[in-house]
């Protein structure tokens, strides 16, 4: 069991963020969701909004226009920005 999540946010131009976080909140098309470590594998469509990542006593925020997200069984969260 891991208690961190590997978050990777990539756009066509660059890798926006890559690192371990404790939780991530994402704006999906069906509403906002929060992903914690050991989440079930999930693929979803993202809408406009902010990705908020929580680290040890630190919050990061990434405004996005939309994209896709993928959570794998080994706690990797990949966000593809469009």
């Amino acid at each position: 069991m891991t208690n961190t999540l590997q978050l990777k946010i990539v756009s066509l131009k660059e890798v926006v963020y890559s690192g371990s976080v404790h939780s991530v909140t994402l704006p999906t098309k069906a509403g906002e969701i929060t992903v914690l470590p050991n989440h079930a594998p999930l693929i979803s469509h993202l809408g406009k909004g902010n990705i908020r990542a929580k680290l040890e006593g630190e919050n990061k925020q990434f405004p996005i226009d939309g994209g896709f997200m993928e959570v794998t069984a080994d706690s990797n969260l990949t966000v593809l920005l469009s």
Binding site: T28, K29, A30, I33, A40, P41, L42, I43, S44, H45, F68, E70, T72, A73, D74, S82
Partner: peptide
């Protein structure tokens, strides 16, 4: 090497995801 990741949940629905994701 990513194999056997298990079945994915699709939100909102697999059809919608495929319809938008594959063309992209």
């Amino acid at each position: 090497d990513v194999v056997n990741v298990g079945e994915y949940l699709f939100e909102p629905s697999p059809k919608e995801i495929f319809d938008t994701l594959l063309p992209t």
